[in-house]
Structures are given as structure tokens and as C-alpha cells.
């Protein structure tokens, strides 16, 4: 469903991604781990073209994002993204955050968008917060609204970039629970995370990145219990 081929990304002189290749099957949950600065975020952001790859191909269901003829806005609707800093729209209520894009982009009317948003708020356990503004919500609640907002576009893939890193520890569980439910429902997910417990429990596959390269990949069991590369072992010894 997603295919990344020979992906390179540089910022000026800094080569951040070096020849990344990977395929992600439909309904697969891939967790990406690796030290800070190894290019995990950049990798995710290349998949919805928030960063433009320097070279290589990114295909989503066979459509190449790097093809100039591809309608990027159309493709971005298929790819939901959840950010570390939530990035909710501060001047809109939780409900409006969720209904905004379906109304403006998918062309739903307000009533349809509201009905869908109500279901999504239910799903993330926040139907009592529909009319709260982001600043009135805790970090965990904001992040769950952000997940609902992304789901409202009915994406085929969800990208999570360290979406629990900015949360107080007691909030992390609620957000992870929502993500587990999504995985169970068969959502295709790429999850950059430092939550190793979550990675082992939910991930179908783990990718270890370092210095802009995929160093090692395999089932979470293989990576966590039986890593082949010293860099992977070193990293895991620090975080586990």
C-alpha cells in the first residue's frame, strides 16, 4: 500500500535520509524507533510531502507522489498525520477542529460533518468536550482530538510522530489506547515512538533508524530480543 524507493532527503549540506527503501502493507502497523536526529520525523513527513524528498519515489496505492501530475492535496487526504505538538487550531472548538477539513475539503455540509465528528469524539472518549477550546483541554485530550481530526478525512494510512512525547506520563495511556483500537480495526499505521511497550504489543514490524538509514527491521520480537546490529543493541540498551 505504501512503497518508498531510494528516498534521499537533504537540508542544504546535511543529508538526513540516505537511500530509504521500504514497503508497508495494508493494515500493517509499523513502528519506527531510533535516536533523536536520526531522520524519523523527516521520513514520516516525506510520506505526506510536508517535506519534499530530494530524490526517490514515494508510492501510495501505486500513485507516485513525486510525479508532478499527482494531485498532492488529494493524496494528503489519504494520509492522516498526528504531530508531537498536537497542532490543533486554537481558535476552534474540538468539534470545529474535526469538522473543518471534511467541510472545506471533502465538501460535507455542516450536519453531515457534525454527525461524523460526534462519532469520532465518541471513539476517542471525548464526546463531553465537543465545545471545549484546545487550551481548555489537557495534553492527552488535545492529542485525542487531533487523532479524531485526522480520522475525519477517512485516511487510508495514519502517521504518528512521537505523539505521546509531549504528554505528562499519566496522559500517555489514554492516547495509546486510542491508537491500539485503531490498529485493531485494521488501520494502516506508521508510528514513530519511544514507547517500547506499545511498539512490542501493537507493532507488526519494527524499523530501527540511525543517521538517516534503516539499520535493521524485523518483527518487534526480533528487534527487541535479538537485534543483529551493534547500533541497534546500543540504542535499545539505553531506552529499555
Amino acid at each position: 500500500m505504501i512503497e518508498v524507493k531510494n528516498l534521499y532527503k537533504r537540508f542544504g549540506d546535511l543529508e538526513v535520509l540516505k537511500n530509504i527503501n521500504c514497503r508497508i502493507a495494508s493494515q500493517e502497523v509499523v513502528v519506527v524507533i531510533g535516536p533523536s536526529g536520526s531522520g524519523k520525523s523527516t521520513f514520516l513527513r516525506c510520506i505526506n510531502l510536508l517535506e519534499e524528498p530530494t530524490s526517490g519515489d514515494v508510492l501510495i496505492e501505486g500513485v507516485n507522489l513525486m510525479d508532478p501530475k499527482t494531485n498532492i492535496n488529494r493524496m494528503r487526504q489519504e494520509v492522516g498525520m498526528v504531530f508531537q505538538q498536537f497542532n490543533l487550531f486554537p481558535n476552534k472548538t474540538a468539534l470545529q477542529n474535526i469538522t473543518m477539513a471534511p467541510m472545506k475539503v471533502r465538501g460535507l455540509n455542516e450536519k453531515q460533518a457534525r454527525e461524523e465528528a460526534d462519532k469520532l469524539l465518541d471513539k476517542v472518549g471525548l464526546n463531553d468536550k465537543a465545545h471545549a477550546y484546545p487550551q481548555q483541554l489537557s495534553g492527552g485530550q488535545q492529542q485525542r482530538v487531533a487523532i479524531a481530526r485526522a480520522l475525519a478525512m477517512r485516511p487510508k494510512v495514519m502517521l504518528f510522530d512521537e505523539c505521546t512525547s509531549a504528554l505528562d506520563p499519566e496522559m500517555v495511556g489514554d492516547v495509546l489506547a486510542v491508537m491500539k483500537d485503531l490498529a485493531k480495526e485494521g488501520m494502516t499505521m506508521i508510528v514513530v515512538t519511544h514507547e517500547m511497550g506499545f511498539a512490542r504489543e501493537v507493532g507488526d514490524r519494527a524499523i530501527f533508524m540511525d543517521e538517516g538509514m534503516i539499520v535493521e527491521e524485523g518483527t518487534p520480537e526480533q528487534i527487541f530480543k535479538n537485534a543483529q546490529h551493534d547500533r541497534t543493541k546500543l540504542f535499545l540498551s539505553k531506552v529499555l
Binding site: L50, N73, R76, Q77, F83, N87, F89, A101, V105, A150
Partner: peptide, 13 residues
């Protein structure tokens, strides 16, 4: 914040 534009673009706007 730059994240506002990114969030909007990631939703397909």
C-alpha cells in the same frame, strides 16, 4: 506557529 499550516496541509487543504 508553523505547525498550524502543516496540520492544515496534512488534512488535504
Amino acid at each position: 506557529n508553523k505547525g498550524q499550516m502543516e496540520a492544515a496541509r496534512s488534512l488535504g487543504m
